[in-house]
Amino acid sequence: MATSLDTRTEPGTPVTHRRPGSPGRPRLSRIDMKYSPYLYVAPFFVLFAVFGVYPLVYTLWVSLHEWDLLAQEHPFVGLANYSALLSDSDFWNSVYNTLGIFVLSTVPQLLLALWLANMLNRQLRARTFFRMGVLIPNITSTAAVAIVFGQLFSRDFGLINWVLGFAGVGPIDWNASKLGSWIAISTMVDWRWTGYNALIFLAAMQAIPRDLYESAAIDGARPSRQFWSITVPLLRPTIVFCVIISTIGGLQLFTEPLLFNSGTNAIRGGPLRESQTMTMYMFENAFAPNYNFGYGAAVAWMLFALIVVVAIVNVLIIRRAARSS
């Protein structure tokens, strides 16, 4: 943490810019100059230490123990939880589901958001209305979204199966197939987050100088060419940002799949664990019905590792893609 403190406050360490011992500078002021920047950034680091670092380290500590939530004794077992986890097929199933739902939701979501942002960036009637409108799904509660979509995707009483029925498609049991449940959950996620990402893209698009487009237009570039050759490359940092944020959110997906699988043992995510994500598997083990806190903590750390890996891969892919275009 000390190192990050230094880098963060670099611009605020001005002592070097002044001639040493210049007259008329009281000592108090010098102390102020030297230390107050640290004070300014302290709130973040204090909060981060309490709510970020401490739980992280404590979780690691718990994961090295056989930790029954109610028991008084928590024997140390070293890496036993991790080695059990690596050969646990239900765990890998949850990893597979998490990644599957992540890809199925994030890719269309960001493409759609980009398209929406591009639309909203044009001269439209009631522009502010539309711009605010796309954000509305984001401010509805996740639980409400999940419950409503859960009903839409209901096997016997759902609107979607009813509509599909007209096309002669028999009632689909969305909960009891991998693809079905993944699609349903991805739809919920996308409905909620597409508008949010679109607004971020829109903000970045408006920072692109207009004259770039004007000169491109004079050179005869059509709107689609302008979009791919000017907008997308200049949006690169924003796209990286959105991808990373979506990665963190997507890999921690919990409420949507949990509420989608209503009823007993919803935490399993379907009879054959069709849509059980990693966070659900963590909860199933750390809390009901297993109450094995150590094992749950190990799942949490594996999730952390996975997010880091996926985020790095994301950044590499996007850098390369943007560079080549």
Partner: peptide, 12 residues
């Protein structure tokens, strides 16, 4: 085949 305690079960 209504999953016990689910929303579908209640609707049924």
């Amino acid at each position: 085949k209504y999953q016990a305690w689910s929303d579908d079960w209640v609707a049924a």
